[in-house]
Computed example of a mutant assay.
Amino acid sequence: MGFGPLHLFRSSKLHRPLCQMLVDNFDLANCSIHIHGRSLSINHVDFELIMGVQDGGSPVDLDGSLDDPDIVELTRKVFGDKEMSVDVLKNLIHNTKKADDTFRISFSLYALAILLCPSTSDKVDPRFLLPLRDPAAVCKNNWATLCFTKLVERLMLFKDRSQYLGGCLVFLQLFYLDSIVSTPPTLYKNMVPATAWGKKESKRV
């Protein structure tokens, strides 16, 4: 679907002081991080390499109408008469017996809401339904670009002190570990950093 090996994701714990340091040293003007006397450029390609989330070639459009009949029907199909929350999605995913279109859409929404483009709310952003109206074309979307763009937007709002910190902070943590460690963990072979770095490997560093 374009989300890579997220089902094997191991780096679920954020080291908050480290993330705060990375955010403080994130240069929004040049899209780079200044750490340990180095200036590291960072972009959507790094997001793709670190997280395993892919760009499929088609821009992700979140500006369409949520009143579109297809979107209304899609919302009803996934959530029924329940609220658009991550708990509803989690239960739906756990109870799905086959990888049908409903599962694809639910998994995509869940991944975006809790990991790739998280916010401080437990509600799912309904705009994420727009690029999911065609489940067969989900893999063609530029997910890495979207997720990195959303991260930068959240960092910008946070630095302006207008909103809480959000976005995929675990990506920044993994980017840091991948950049400074000369000898990666044993599990790193043939794996993206998101699946190689677990609690034990991160704690060692």
Rank of each mutant, 00 (worst) to 15 (best):
M1N: 06
G2Q: 06
F3E: 09
S12N: 10
K13Y: 13
L14G: 00
H15K: 13
H15T: 12
R16T: 14
L18N: 13
D24N: 14
N25L: 08
L28S: 07
I33Q: 04
I35L: 15
I35F: 14
I35C: 11
H36E: 15
L40Q: 06
L40R: 09
S41P: 01
I42H: 06
V53A: 05
D55Q: 05
G57E: 14
P59M: 09
D61E: 08
L62I: 13
D63W: 06
D68G: 07
P69N: 08
I71Y: 02
L74I: 13
R76G: 12
R76D: 09
V78Q: 04
F79A: 02
G80N: 07
D81Q: 14
S85G: 13
D87L: 09
H94S: 12
N95G: 01
N95W: 00
T96L: 09
T96K: 03
K98G: 00
I105P: 01
S106V: 04
F107Y: 12
A111W: 09
A111C: 10
L116S: 03
P118M: 08
T120L: 11
V124P: 02
V124I: 07
F128Q: 05
L132V: 13
D134M: 06
C139H: 15
K140Y: 05
N141H: 10
T145M: 04
C147N: 06
T149D: 11
K150T: 08
V152K: 11
F158L: 03
D160V: 01
R161N: 11
L165H: 04
G166D: 10
G167T: 00
V170D: 11
F171E: 07
L174K: 11
L177C: 06
D178V: 00
V181P: 00
V181S: 08
T183E: 10
P185Y: 06
Y188F: 13
V192K: 07
T195S: 12
G198C: 07
K199S: 14
K200F: 10
V205W: 12
